[in-house]
Amino acid sequence: MLRDITLGQYYQTESVIHRLDPRVKLTGTILYIISLFLFNQFTGYLVAALFLCVVIRLSKVPFRYMVRGMKAILFLLLFTMAFNLFLTPGEPLVQFWKLTITREGLRISVFMAIRLTFLIIGSSVMTLTTTPNHLTDGMEKLMGPLKKVRVPVHEVSMMMSIALRFIPILMEETDKIMKAQIARGADFESGNLVKKAKAMVPLLVPLFISAFRRANDLAMAMEARCYQGGAGRTKMKPLQYARRDYLAYGVLIAYLLALMLMKYVGSFI
């Protein structure tokens, strides 16, 4: 199940979206997510969907990779939908037993589902087209001004990029430990919650010990390679805006303007 989480998984290919500066992609994703919550009409969603489709097309990442990220939040999605569907007061549409579906409820739950879906796919586009390293570089640079107020921006981004590198390694390790314990008759599946929690001990102890060991080794290896924090460091791949990045910002603004326009026009319909 863990492997279904697409967030943080880079899809290697050549495309305009891949080549964009990570700062553009980060800003773009954030603005896109905000934009999803700006409007309440279907026309607005149409524009948002269109924009997303074009970006996905340009990224050359197969669509099923985007959808894969959805699997992980399917439960959350259904839960939110059900919650909104049954608990929004308003004009009743259908009624059975103690549950009532209202027109407003239906509307809100559908909107919520669309928003969440677009949100996940939108951020998947970013993570699928940007190497995690590039992403953390972008964040470091975008949050650069925070350094002045003593926020350890470099350290945080270094931590993130290391965490991202070790996630697949630790996942594989979890799988191996699980198998080793199952081979000794461990049972991770049956029993009530307490029993299940107890059954996790033979998995978690070796995993934690290994993670700490790795952390220790890695810290030593980094020091051995002269790592001493962000000061005095140069960059192998410094971020520099190219023409296409300015162009992309232009497209983003155009998209936002189009949405505003829709909202304005939509309010008359």
Partner: peptide
């Protein structure tokens, strides 16, 4: 070091090789 997994910092081969020189302040 001994464990190959615990000393590679970069997520792309070339970025990892560049890690040392970056720390030393070598020009891009």
């Amino acid at each position: 070091f001994q464990n190959p997994d615990n000393q590679i910092i970069g997520q792309v081969v070339e970025e990892d090789v560049g890690f040392g020189p970056e720390n030393m302040g070598v020009p891009t």
